[in-house]
């Protein structure tokens, strides 16, 4: 009897814990994902068709299309993030190793993630505006004879968006890496330093192997999110002048047809583009897992 009651209590407890997230997941994750697939195959009249896909491939071939540019910039952004990744880890590492002023950096380096993007982009675009010394120096260094409007000029806009992203992301993921380095047992490093190990071999031979699982996981995540790679182009110049990325493009599609016109065909086309992108992303994801299979096995949550 007692046992039965216990079991009953357990079932109730489990239901309480899992029902809300599962219902939420079915409504807000499963349903829209399936309806995205259906929407991708509908035309503006709601009839089944492959129009959206033919349009997608047509636009992808067009050298001037937004979509093509968006893909190009997304890959570029991803490449830069990939190259920058080790440097971002180094930031946390040096703070962990207590470079002079690390206590100060530990706090200040959080600023880019604490300050809201709406504010930082607003300030940033004014700092690089024609009245500021940055734009003026660019004009002088390149001997242009005028001060360029960096965000409204194809020659500079995309570079500026990428630099802004690098600037703000320089400290990297302090929370994750701070936590990871903090877990390295101090004895290990102390004994190493007593053995007279140099900085470089300490880093490469002790630190990196120890945190490798985290690196591997982050790499997988980075690669799987490849099509989401984007700077703040939307807030900086609305994705104009060659700065649009895939995620900015997608966001703009939803935003511009929101409100009363939410049934517009724009959403169907967006779904088709999303579907194609997802298929490629699945491919990449499987590939990268095969590639890092060994690494991924080591990951433990």
């Amino acid at each position: 009897m007692e046992k039965k009651k216990r079991k009953f209590n357990e079932v109730i407890f489990i239901i309480c814990c899992i029902s809300v997230p599962i219902i939420q997941w079915l409504i807000f994750y499963v349903y829209p994902n399936f309806s995205t697939i259906f929407m991708a195959f509908r035309d503006s009249q709601g009839v089944w068709s492959l129009d959206n896909f033919t349009r997608f491939f047509k636009e992808l071939k067009l050298p001037t299309s937004d979509i093509r540019l968006a893909f190009r910039n997304t890959f570029l952004t991803f490449g830069i993030l990939f190259v920058a990744y080790p440097f971002k880890v180094m930031v946390s590492y040096f703070i962990y190793k207590k470079v002079p002023g690390s206590g100060f950096y530990r706090i200040v380096f959080f600023l880019p993630s604490i300050l809201f993007a709406v504010c930082t982009t607003m300030v940033f675009s004014r700092i690089i505006g024609v009245n500021g010394f940055i734009a003026q120096s660019v004009g002088e260094i390149l001997d242009l004879g005028y001060t360029p409007e960096l965000l409204q000029d194809e020659r500079f806009a995309n570079t500026v968006v990428l630099l802004e992203m690098l600037w703000l992301q320089f400290p990297g993921d302090l929370i994750i890496w701070g936590g990871t380095f903090a877990r390295i047992p101090e004895e290990v490093l102390e004994s190493a330093s007593l053995d007279g190990v140099t900085w470089w071999s300490e880093f490469t031979k002790i630190i990196v192997p120890m945190v490798w699982p985290t690196v591997a996981l982050q790499m997988v995540l980075l690669f799987c999110g490849i099509f989401g790679a984007s700077g703040n182009a939307f807030l900086l110049n609305n994705g104009s002048h060659g700065t649009i990325t895939l995620s900015v493009w997608m966001y703009k599609q939803v935003l511009e047809s929101s409100g009363a016109s939410y049934t517009a065909n724009v959403y169907n086309y967006l779904s088709a583009v999303g579907l194609m992108t997802t298929i490629v992303a699945i491919g990449i994801s499987i590939g990268i897992r095969k590639f890092t299979d060994k690494m991924f096995d080591d990951v433990e949550f």
């Binding site: 899992i18 309806s35 989401g228 047809s257 779904s271």
Partner: peptide, 29 residues
């Protein structure tokens, strides 16, 4: 409980594999 191991796998896939372009469907929902 039935499906408890599935949930972990699903979350793992969901977090590592974002699905793109669902903004329109989500807005409609």
């Amino acid at each position: 409980f039935p499906g408890s191991e599935w949930i972990y796998t699903i979350v793992l896939i969901m977090t590592t594999l974002p699905i793109y372009g669902t903004g329109g469907a989500t807005y409609r929902l």
